[in-house]
Amino acid sequence: MRLELIIKILTENWHMFLRGAGMTLYISVIGTIFGFIIGLIVGIIRTIPIPERGFKKGFLKVINWLLSAYIEFFRGTPMMVQAMVIYYGSAEALGINMDKYAAAIFIVSINTGAYMAEIVRGGIISIDKGQFEAAHAMGMNHFQTMIYVVMPQVIRNILPATGNEFVINIKDTSVLNVISVSELFFTTKSIAGNSFIFYPPFFIACVLYFVMTFTVTRILRFIEKKIDGPENFILAGNQMQVAKPEDMLKRSN
């Protein structure tokens, strides 16, 4: 491996790499957060118990059908193709000139949303029926039950899957180069194109992608641990009764 070549490319283009990596991170962070929120909302709506009759039943059925269609469509088509259809389609067919970064975030968000909706639904189904019953027996309605009891548990349980989505988003923003969003892959491609040197820039991009995904995974693991809380609990009301030798020492000093 020609190390000096890699160093040369890096010293000449480091700001471009950084800007590209920054854009990749920016789009995937915002896209994942929006997608997560879309997923939660769709997941909650799709698990509303459907009443046996009345106007509400028909209304919910239509909503559920629309949401299923949304999920199936966006899961079932490649993000690269969606990017082309939405970005160029909105310009050519509807005459709306979307900002390409807004379009990028929009595409990543609704894509993630479609996947997250199913992850959230799975998370809700996996919560023990007893949790719902206990909340209902207390007089909570569907939304109170969801917000105060079920969703906190679902969010904890789907964090690993969300991390997956996040990592996938960091990597998959590279397909947005088709609408010339200057993310990491796009900038790397232009660096390579300008210098006619190919593998060193892409090797650098590789390392940058890995650093980003690895950091994100670690941060999410840390959040998981934070949510889980300490392994042990403190008995209340008797802190003074059991003084440990080290506490006594501390106090006498």
């Binding site: 019953e133 909340a135 209902h136 027996a137 007089g139 909570m140 009891v149 904890r156």
Partner: peptide, 22 residues
């Protein structure tokens, strides 16, 4: 029915404590 249910306290066989709270 929500107001009515607050008037009845329910204790379940499987406890059903909310796992996300202490």
């Amino acid at each position: 029915i929500y107001a009515y249910r607050t008037k009845l306290g329910m204790v379940f066989q499987q406890f059903n404590l909310f796992n996300n709270y202490n």
